[in-house]
Amino acid sequence: MTAAVPLPQGSYTPRGTPLDLTPTAPPPTSRTVFSAAHVVADPYADISPDGPAALDWDATLAFRRHLWAHGLGVAEAMDTAQRGMGLDWAGAAELIRRSGAEAKTVGGRIACGVGTDQLPDGGTPTLAEVTSAYEEQLALAEENGVQPILMASRALARAASGPDDYLATYAHLLRQTTEPVILHWLGPVFDPALEGYWGSDDLDEATDTFLKVIAEHPDKVDGIKISLLEADREIDVRRRLPGGVRCYTGDDFNYPELIAGDERGFSHALLGVFDPLGPLAAHAVRVLDTGDTEAFRALLDPTVELSRHLFRPPTRFYKTGVVLLAWLAGHQDHFTMVGGLQSARSLPHLAKAYELADGLGLFPDPELAAHRMRALLAVHGGAR
């Protein structure tokens, strides 16, 4: 039995036995499930605080192979990969190239974020500049054979004067895509710079504009990802989608009930929390494939406490807990993040994340996780 870990909130004795989730099963069939994957920083790179990100490419790609091995799709270069929070467009472009090539090698499903982050922060770009930036990134995605995810754009939020500018910009982009894309509505809880997206602070009005984009181009939209953390709104939008357009939940608070669905439909998934939950999530959805909703909920409902903890306000810093858990699980050799974001959460917050994840059996080697957690506490909290 692993010795107790002296956490800030009190001594904790690890469970000792992890879940047995070997990566041998096929992908789920009843739902399309993507994990938005984190990136692994290079801890020995000699870079300045405001310099470009330096990644450990071997560890970054190995984590994606881990997700694919469990039957999950990878949502690449999204906010979980610190897009716009340390990873610039040059780094994201290289990530798309490398992950796209890796996906072809292993036969993994991949979709990649397409945005406008090559434009400078601040100021007010023109709509033409925003459109051109989107086009550049769309071209890169298509050149590398990955499905584009049209991400919400901070630059468009600054440039647009109302709903019509959003309708025109998205219509222009969708007309030129060669394959159906995923539209991503990331709410201000994840990125405050996206307040008022779709041309209104009123979510009902914004929803109407969002749905109008889809209704006018249903053949160019594979699905939508909604990250508003409002289950009722997602269900309402899901029921109003044209036939054949999927709803991918991005609700890291209510995902079990949204994926399970109701008599009028269900959500697929594209979730940041499926980075640490990957093997368990894939197993749960395969159980759902059999029609056993009760067993699916029994597996996934207990994970919500961990997810709500990781995504507690300020929600955009959830990546810190995600990377902590990857380190504790042995997927990388250090707890260093792009832009120094390992310092974005308190020591008690990280300790609670460890306790909750261990209680779920997420660590393949509980002794390693406990050892690393003790080391983190000793370095950053001092001896007690």
Rank of each mutant, 00 (worst) to 15 (best):
residue 142 E to Y: 11
residue 174 L to V: 09
residue 374 R to Y: 03
residue 214 I to P: 11
residue 248 Y to P: 05
residue 118 Q to P: 00
residue 111 A to V: 11
residue 110 I to K: 01
residue 14 P to S: 03
residue 72 L to R: 04
residue 187 G to P: 01
residue 304 V to Y: 05
residue 174 L to R: 08
residue 227 S to W: 04
residue 303 T to Q: 03
residue 157 A to G: 00
residue 21 L to T: 00
residue 96 I to N: 10
residue 209 T to P: 03
residue 196 G to A: 01
residue 266 F to T: 06
residue 142 E to D: 14
residue 150 L to P: 09
residue 76 E to T: 12
residue 219 D to C: 05
residue 364 P to D: 07
residue 273 V to C: 15
residue 382 G to I: 02
residue 298 A to Q: 13
residue 332 Q to S: 14
residue 207 T to F: 05
residue 253 F to L: 12
residue 221 V to E: 12
residue 341 L to R: 11
residue 304 V to G: 11
residue 111 A to N: 08
residue 69 A to I: 01
residue 245 V to L: 02
residue 44 Y to P: 03
residue 163 P to T: 12
residue 193 A to M: 06
residue 151 M to C: 13
residue 103 A to K: 07
residue 282 A to G: 09
residue 318 Y to E: 01
residue 166 Y to H: 07
residue 205 E to I: 13
residue 319 K to A: 02
residue 81 A to D: 06
residue 142 E to A: 15
residue 231 A to M: 12
residue 213 V to C: 10
residue 179 E to W: 00
residue 348 P to M: 08
residue 210 F to K: 11
residue 360 L to P: 05
residue 270 L to E: 06
residue 92 A to M: 03
residue 148 P to Y: 02
residue 93 A to P: 04
residue 70 H to T: 04
residue 351 A to Y: 01
residue 384 R to M: 09
residue 379 V to T: 15
residue 10 G to L: 15
residue 287 V to D: 02
residue 124 T to E: 14
residue 65 R to D: 14
residue 356 L to C: 00
residue 288 L to S: 09
residue 253 F to K: 08
residue 162 G to F: 12
residue 272 G to N: 11
residue 261 G to H: 12
residue 62 A to T: 03
residue 192 P to S: 13
residue 374 R to T: 14
residue 313 P to E: 08
residue 209 T to V: 15
residue 81 A to Y: 10
residue 123 G to T: 03
residue 244 G to H: 11
residue 12 Y to M: 03
residue 355 E to L: 07
residue 249 T to S: 13
residue 364 P to R: 08
residue 162 G to M: 14
residue 325 L to P: 01
residue 20 D to L: 10
residue 121 D to L: 13
residue 157 A to F: 00
residue 60 T to I: 09
residue 238 R to C: 11
residue 355 E to P: 06
residue 107 G to W: 02
residue 47 I to K: 11
residue 343 S to F: 13
residue 46 D to A: 14
residue 133 A to V: 03
residue 216 E to F: 01
residue 94 E to W: 11
residue 219 D to F: 10
residue 310 L to Y: 06
residue 72 L to C: 10
residue 83 R to T: 15
residue 125 P to H: 09
residue 181 V to F: 03
residue 345 R to T: 11
residue 358 D to W: 06
residue 89 W to G: 05
residue 138 L to I: 11
residue 379 V to I: 14
residue 180 P to I: 07
residue 169 T to C: 13
